[in-house]
Design a binder for these strands. Structure first.
Length: 570
RNA sequence: GGGCCCGUAGCUCAGCUGGUUAGAGCAGUCCGCUCAUAACGGAUUGGUCGCAGGUUCGAGUCCUGCCGGGCCUACCA
């Protein structure tokens, strides 16, 4: 039995995520977790909300709530939606947890002991009206290069020139519009990533089986310009993990917090501790400390490409730099973006379909299947309502749903709602079993390689084999002259439904559960061989005819939804 | 500006270290079946593999240049 640790990039607390976010991290992570659990492996699947930082503070202020309350509410909302998508986290934690505070401070202390922290004096813009320091991009003004009047302090969106806030003409706060700004001196901690460059470079270089997307982004950062730069890990904010050196005060850092990207990945570890403290587990170090049992753990991370630098460099620098035996990631699966009807999904612009809206119109399996079977693995992919309707109707309703329907209803009408006795499996069944065996093997191989689209294609092919078999065997014709032979055909077909109910579970857990329940086999084990798997529903066993697994998306629905989601989310 | 990724049938995509007539699903066309959500099965149409050079006995696959699309570029997270 293998031990698999899985983390999904933790979604930011600031609002409900869209389907592009979902397909890039949580959904494929869930697929992988469900698969390995089904194979009987020991899985710990963790996710959390990423709660610190300026956007959370501003969103809370806009909602007129204390930031802690706002985050608590949004965490509950995101947890509920995750449940709606059947995301099977062992624990859905919070980066603002006490466990994460302690661990983040611990890591900072360790890094300081290892001489990997430097203190740097720098200048930041302070807004008197807002009563806070402002990150570069929260300062707006006129671009000195192109005169665009809504240039941001980090970059001008109009001419794409990189800027420094002090370059802006007539700078103002993007929060309040105030021009009462002041450049202040402030001291911050930097993680000396540059001194770990060779170590990280060697580590990345040995990861030849990682997605090109992952390693190319990492190598770019390692080798670009002067190589990997040190990174500031503190901010002048109120909301965050207070800067401390382990359990001790950090002189000069009294009013500062750690940067979200420092504490957010540490939440992967802290989340395991939350999991134990919540009474769901007993030993978190067994998953995270290689000196305490985690040496045989395989650790997989899932994320969108925008998260790659932090997971390939910053977080490993934190882990390695600590000098303690923490578990390092073994495989980083990264995804491109999913676009929406010719443009990008956008949280800030409210463009596209958001997770709560998706669940309002269709059951999660529809979304899970389409998103996973079109996961943006090699390049950005695109959601359109036309394709979504066509693909979902064909794959789920016609190929799979109709198979279940035709088999169970035929049996009910000819033999009743029990698995019929009589006849034997002949050459055609042997061929079916052999074909299935090859495809199931291939499905497992793709799944273990985290090849999401290929896994989906293979699963679909496995479903299609059922229809091919049935068409060739023609039990409806055979029944007229040889009911026993027809019974054998139906018996193996009913077993196929149970098998599909098992193989399909990682992709479409609800429908899979319905299939297994209908065959009276809710708790099947993953098949060692297809041959033995197709003898599990035995003559005389009762089954039920389930409701149609998937109803089709009509043209009317498609048109209504494409209009409803064409504009800006209200 | 620099770097990376992608560009293969109408659409979505496979094609590992270069090797017989370039594959799959969808859509289209034809045939078959009638158990089933008018679903299913079989067959079939369709590509000068972005363009131009080059290496090679041989290139979708390697090299160079160009065109088009996307992403990243370190204080949003």
């Amino acid at each position: 039995m293998k031990r698999i640790l899985i983390t999904s990039a933790i979604p930011y607390i600031n609002g409900i995520k869209h389907l592009g976010n979902l397909v890039g991290s949580q959904l494929p992570a869930d697929l992988f977790a469900r698969y390995h659990r089904a194979r009987g492996n020991e899985v710990l699947f963790l996710c959390a909300t990423d709660e610190h930082g300026t956007p959370a503070e501003l969103a809370a202020a806009k909602a007129g709530k204390p930031v802690a309350d706002y985050c608590a509410e949004m965490h509950a909302v995101q947890a509920k939606i995750a449940e709606g998508f059947s995301l099977s986290f062992d624990h859905f934690g919070r980066s603002s947890s006490q466990q994460n505070k302690e661990l983040t401070q611990h890591f900072a202390g360790r890094l300081a002991e290892q001489n990997l922290i430097s203190e740097v004096d720098e200048q930041q813009v302070y807004s008197h009206t807002d009563g806070r320091f402002l990150p570069d991009r929260y300062i707006e003004g006129t671009c000195p290069n192109c005169n665009y009047d809504k240039a941001r302090g980090d970059q001008c969106e109009n001419c794409t020139k990189q800027l420094d806030p002090i370059d802006l003409i007539n700078p103002r706060s993007a929060v309040s519009g105030s021009t009462d700004l002041e450049v202040r001196n402030t001291r911050h901690l930097y993680l000396k990533q540059s001194s770990l460059r060779d170590t990280l470079n060697a580590w990345i270089s040995e990861k030849t089986d990682w997605p090109i997307l992952t390693t190319s982004i990492a190598k770019k950062w390692l080798n670009d310009g002067d190589g990997l730069q040190d990174r500031g890990i503190t901010r002048d904010l109120d909301w965050g993990v207070p800067v401390r050196k382990g359990g001790a005060a950090w002189p000069g850092m009294e009013d500062k917090v750690f940067y979200v990207w420092f504490d957010a990945p540490i939440e992967y570890i802290a989340c395991a501790r939350e999991w134990v403290d919540a009474g769901k587990g007993t030993d978190w170090e067994r998953w995270w400390r290689t000196d305490k049992g985690a040496d045989d753990v395989s650790y997989y991370q899932f994320m969108g490409k925008d998260n790659v630098p932090f997971h390939t460099l910053s977080f490993p620098a934190t882990i390695l730099g600590s000098g303690e035996p923490w578990k390092l990631v073994d495989y980083i699966k990264s995804f491109n973006y999913l676009n929406y009807d010719g443009g990008q999904f956008s949280t800030s612009q409210g463009r596209g379909i958001f997770m709560d809206q998706a669940l309002e119109i269709l059951a999660p399996d529809y979304w899970r299947w389409w998103l996973l079977s079109h996961a943006p693995e090699t390049s950005d992919s695109e959601f359109t309502w036309i394709k979504f309707q066509a693909d979902v109707n064909k794959d789920l309703s016609d190929v799979l749903g109709n198979f279940v329907s035709r088999v169970t209803k035929f049996c009910r009408s000819k033999f009743g709602e029990t698995v019929p006795a009589g006849g034997n499996y002949g050459p055609r069944e042997k061929t079916l079993i052999a074909d299935l065996q090859i495809r199931v093997q291939s499905y497992q191989t793709h799944m273990e390689a985290v090849d999401v689209r290929k896994s989906a294609a293979e699963l679909r092919a496995i479903w299609a084999l059922g229809n091919e078999y049935l068409q060739a065997a023609e039990p409806w014709a055979v029944f007229k002259t040889d009911p026993d032979s027809a019974a054998a055909i139906v018996r193996i077909s009913l077993n196929l439904i149970a098998l599909y109910g098992q193989l399909s579970a990682p992709f479409i857990p609800d429908a899979a559960s319905t299939m297994r329940a209908a065959m009276g086999r809710p708790d099947l084990q993953w098949p060692n061989t297809v041959e033995t798997a197709l003898d599990r529903c035995e003559a005389g066993d009762a089954f039920t005819v389930p409701e149609n697994l998937f109803s089709k998306i009509t043209d009317e629905q498609r048109e209504e939804w494409s209009v409803r989601f064409s504009g800006i989310r209200s």
